[in-house]
Computed example of a mutant assay.
Amino acid sequence: MNLIDATGLRVSLGGQPVLSDVDFSIAPGEIVTIVGPNGSGKSTLLRTLIGAVRPESGKVRHRPGLRLGYVPQKLAMDPTLPLTVMRFLSLPHRVPAAERAAALEEAGAGTLGDRPMTGLSGGQFQRVLLARALLNKPDVLLLDEPTQGLDQPGSAAFYRQIEHIRSHLGCAVVMVSHELHVVMSASDRVVCLNGHVCCQGHPEVVAQAAEYRALFGSGTHGALALYRHEHSHSHDADCGHTHHEGHHDHGAAPAPRTAEAG
């Protein structure tokens, strides 16, 4: 059973259509990345999946008892607020110190507990937000462009941490990203969005699809070789479908990978 099933989603913001007849699903343990140009509806889809945006039509179904962890694209904080990382993780509801420390460790930020939030680098701040999302022990971790503003090595390290979390905690992951060359390697399936689902499937198959290349150009595929995982199983692509078509069957989730991206 899928953790999340969304069918026929139509969303408008400010009277402007943003999503049209979008189908989306994620299976247990799967890492799915949503890519698309600016204004393509990626963040809106993520917020619709978690229930923050109500669709005009269509449905989002969660598996009963589903726990979600959400990492927003950005979080503005008052720079004069004297708030340590550990204190931040205990707002708005108190969380036992051991649980906060464990979440920081899982997010690769175990040494940051006593640091002031306003003194963190961009990468450290994102890892603390990740730790906050992990406090809920999520079945699905949803991240909205979590490495925006980080350099390429920082981004690659963050995505490797996400793969570690998926492997260690067994949670599924939905990511929105604009960093095609890095994020492709960290995904089991890529959904290419431009108001509707243009193309989806295994990263290397999607990178060859005409719909993907029309949006991003053909040069992006070369970078995949630098980060590519080796897979022993086959993949199916679901490319060339427009938003007028019905629900897509993604099949079983790929087996978790054990290789690390270089």
Rank of each mutant, 00 (worst) to 15 (best):
G113R: 03
P96C: 08
G122A: 01
R115L: 08
V95G: 03
L89R: 00
T111G: 05
L112N: 00
L134D: 05
A102H: 11
K137L: 11
P96D: 12
A97V: 13
R87A: 15
G119M: 12
Q124N: 01
S90G: 10
M86C: 09
R127H: 04
P92G: 09
M86P: 05
P116L: 13
L134F: 13
F125D: 04
H93K: 14
V128C: 13
L130T: 02
R87M: 10
G110I: 02
L130K: 05
A131W: 02
T118V: 11
P138N: 05
L91Q: 13
V95F: 03
S121Q: 08
A109W: 02
F88R: 03
L134V: 10
T118Y: 10
R132S: 11
L91I: 12
G123C: 13
R132V: 07
R100F: 01
L135M: 02
G113Y: 04
N136L: 14
Q126S: 05
P116F: 12
F88L: 04
T118N: 14
R87V: 11
A133I: 13
A133P: 05
L134Y: 13
G110R: 07
A103I: 07
L91V: 14
L89F: 01
L135S: 02
A98Y: 08
M86E: 14
A109M: 06
A101W: 06
F88C: 03
A98I: 12
A102D: 12
A133V: 13
D114T: 06
Q126G: 00
E99H: 15
Q124L: 00
P92L: 04
G123T: 14
G122L: 00
L104C: 05
P138D: 03
E105F: 03
G122N: 01
G113A: 15
R94Y: 10
E106H: 14
R132T: 04
V128L: 08
